[in-house]
């Protein structure tokens, strides 16, 4: 029983970490309708920034979020404005996917050029210390990530539901043509949303860097799991991404212990295939609006 509780705790903590990566991905997908294959590399860039700022300035890694979040926001906004937007009228929308894959490769190679293939360990300032809750032990940093993920999801939901800008973002996603007729600058909304999605992962990277060694390919591992989560939760659903992440975190931890740690990813991607076949809209999926103004 004690072991089981510990595995559940590990799974939930892992889920919180996945959630903080997946939320930005699902936001960008749901609003801009672009699958951002460079999302993991945004995480990698954020983690290197945290590493550099923490080791260079000697500040707590969490404090670097103040700089990493705006930098990642700009990275996302620039990606939308200079890479995706010019391709919006491309004959085939899949070209946008190739563009984000290209960006991902470019960022990985840029990191290899600057930092080499060695791993970079961010000073952890004690967030790797264990804390005991009841009979289970978790890392302090994991608990912060879990709480931060909850805050991020609630914050984003409130922003989208209650603010004028949030409403304009949702309107653009639901019916872009009508949104333009309301006076909404749809291009600006896309740039803003891409920026927010990247800023979310920037927030995550300041929290993740002290727990995981940073390397040029660190993003690839996280983003593959994040794609599974986004599909499980329902494309574009922020609560879906959160609960999807917890489920995948639990599956990962349970299958790692009961089936074998080599087979964890096989189980996770097995679930991915089953969802695609049985419920492609995901747990929280809504129908995709096909409404457009006809010519």
């Amino acid at each position: 029983m004690q072991t089981f509780l510990q595995i559940i705790a590990n799974g939930l903590m892992l889920g919180g970490l996945f959630a903080i990566v997946a939320v930005g991905l699902t936001l960008i997908f749901g609003i801009v309708k672009v699958v951002n294959f460079a999302h993991g590399e945004f995480l990698m860039v954020g983690m290197y920034l945290t590493y550099l700022l923490t080791s260079g300035l000697g500040v707590h890694p969490y404090a670097t979020a103040v700089a990493v979040i705006p930098i990642l926001f700009v990275l996302g906004a620039v990606t939308q404005r200079l890479l995706i937007q010019p391709l919006m009228h491309a004959r085939d929308e899949h070209i946008q996917i190739f563009a984000t894959v290209g960006l991902s490769t470019a960022l990985i190679n840029l990191a290899l050029l600057i930092f080499g293939a060695d791993i970079a360990n961010t000073p952890n300032y004690g967030v790797r210390s264990q804390i005991q809750i009841g009979s289970v032990r978790i890392l302090e940093g994991q608990l912060w990530i879990f709480l931060a993920a909850i805050l991020l999801v609630i914050g984003l939901q409130l922003f989208l539901a209650r603010t004028n800008t949030g409403r304009a973002i949702r309107a653009t996603a639901q019916n872009r043509a009508a949104a333009r007729l309301m006076g909404i600058n749809d291009r600006f909304i896309y740039v803003l949303t891409f920026g927010i999605g990247a800023a979310c992962v920037g927030f995550g990277s300041a929290l993740i860097a002290p727990l995981y060694p940073t390397s040029p390919t660190i993003g690839t591992y996280f983003v593959l799991i994040a794609f599974v989560i986004v599909v499980l939760g329902g494309l574009g659903s922020i609560p879906g991404a959160f609960f999807g992440a917890l489920i995948i975190g639990l599956v990962d931890a349970l299958s790692g212990f009961y089936i074998g740690s080599d087979l964890r990813e096989a189980v996770v991607f097995g679930i991915f295939l089953v969802i695609l076949i049985l419920k492609p809209s995901g747990l929280f999926g809504t129908r995709v609006s096909q409404a457009h103004v006809s010519p």
Partner: peptide
């Protein structure tokens, strides 16, 4: 189009084109 709306010209499009997953109030606020 958004700049034309800012000038004071609003089009009520054919086929309504409401925001389907928003309440009536939110549609009006938009």
């Amino acid at each position: 189009p958004h700049a034309v709306v800012d000038r004071g010209i609003t089009l009520i499009p054919e086929g309504r084109q409401l925001f389907p997953d928003m309440s009536v109030r939110e549609n009006l606020l938009m």
